[in-house]
């Protein structure tokens, strides 16, 4: 059986790739994709711990399903915001979007 550490390692890698995406990409859609990666890294963790700690209790699995739901809702809202931004300023380059300040 594959040990727990391997799962954690994969999940950590996936999370780092997600953060890197969020912090370095200029395209808002790419940032959303990075966020999805981070969420899925968390999901891997949840499922892995759920399997290794106590397989009879399905708390990790159920929690992963909830995270998927939240991710779907977040993606919908995020994309709607991006579309609204695009309609107003005709690009989605987050480097240039800085009107929400003092």
């Amino acid at each position: 059986m594959i040990p727990l550490n391997w799962y954690l390692f994969v999940s950590g890698m996936l999370f780092c790739i997600g953060i890197f995406g969020v912090l370095s990409r200029r395209n808002a859609i790419a940032i959303l994709m990075g966020i999805e990666l981070m969420l899925n890294a968390a999901n891997i963790n949840l499922v892995a711990f759920g399997r290794f700690m106590d397989p009879s209790v399905l708390a990790g699995h159920v929690f992963a399903v909830f995270v998927l739901t939240v991710a779907a809702a977040e993606a919908a809202v995020g994309l709607a915001i991006i579309i609204a931004v695009y309609r107003n300023i005709e690009h989605i380059n987050v480097d240039k979007i800085n009107i929400m300040k003092w």
Partner: peptide, 17 residues
């Protein structure tokens, strides 16, 4: 402190990280 509020999304994300 208000100079921290740049309005740029990735600055906030960086600070959080």
């Amino acid at each position: 402190f208000r100079f921290a509020q740049t309005g740029l999304l990735q600055d906030y994300a960086l600070i959080v990280f």
